[in-house]
Nucleic acid binder design. Structure first.
Lengths: 181, 181
DNA sequence: ACCTGAACACCGTTCAAGT
DNA sequence: ACCTGAACACCGTTCAAGT
């Protein structure tokens, strides 16, 4: 049924994490499931659709992990922690999120979640979309640079948690200024 | 001589901008120069090296455009404008900058330029690397999202200049707070 | 010194066929 | 309803050969 589609996307993510995105091919995914390459086409329109499906799955997992309780500062920290945990769990597949346009349903749900937190903080509605794009760019981009090596060696054996926490504290201060406290 | 290497990278960038990164193949680049695919290998080690060379060329152009005069705020704005102009001139090739690890010489030169501006602003040396990564992530990531469609339709016929200027003003305020004025 | 052509092991995808 | 296999037009890259 449609959990065959889920299996296909799951295996594609496993391949990406183990051997890199370049290793994700219709043939390789089929092989993992004991199927001919052609057997996966009924469940996934094309290779591009498969890659979009992988992004969709990753963001879906992310949204499952992001809790909704607490003050807006803690909610923002929780979303950030969830993104960075996702990147560390899927170092191979994660960069697809930034690489593909991704005007998908789950992308919008993440944007809505961040917008919702900003609204709860008291950010004027006119400023919310701008700050949402600022925060999501910083958040997704930082994890991407970390995972694909753009940052190089790293401060302490590749632990960027402390640095990003400081970045996020700065951005929180910035938001506090905008809402005037 | 070695301007054959430059021609090869130039043509690869043209192909990427006109038909997307996926259209960049050794065969396609060769064809543009009237050469067999194999004739380009002496000048470019591999396809991966070609892609890295494209990033190197793009960042090189960027650094040529980024002026060094004025106050640190204006220098930061100039670098930002240069990055965004680069992305608009190379909408197809630009995403390679975020997609590839790129621990290349030109990447370091961009990092050094931003670090230099932060140092000139009076940011404590211990904070410079963190803020450099924050700014470069935001700057490169914003242009990437803009160019690959992650942001969707856009505020006014795809003009994100005003929005990014506001983001940058916010970050400048943040830096001013850190240096204590 | 510089380039070509054939060949190999891969791709995504179409189509006709099998159960 | 679901899957396979052959085929097509592509890849990156190796190697031996041509001028």
């Amino acid at each position: 049924m449609d959990d065959k589609q889920r299996q296909i996307i799951d295996q594609a993510i496993v391949i990406a994490d183990e051997h890199g995105i370049a290793a994700v091919s219709m043939r390789a995914v089929g092989q993992r499931l004991g199927l001919s390459p052609m057997a996966i086409y009924p469940y996934v329109r094309s290779k591009d659709a498969l890659l979009d499906g992988m992004v969709e799955r990753l963001l879906g997992d992310l949204l499952t992990m992001a809790p909704g309780a607490g003050g807006w500062q803690d909610r923002l920290r929780a979303v950030s922690a969830a993104v960075r945990a996702l990147a560390r769990r899927h170092p191979g597949a994660y960069p697809l999120i930034m690489a593909r346009p991704g005007a998908t349903a789950e992308t919008r749900r993440l944007d809505d979640l961040i917008s919702d937190i900003l609204g709860a903080a008291g950010v004027p509605a006119a400023e919310v979309p701008r700050l949402e794009r600022l925060l999501s760019t910083l958040l997704l981009g930082f994890a991407n640079s970390e995972v694909n090596g753009r940052f190089g060696a790293g401060p302490a054996a590749g632990d960027w948690d402390a640095e990003f926490a400081a970045d996020l504290d700065d951005e929180i201060r910035l938001i506090e200024q905008i809402i005037g406290r």
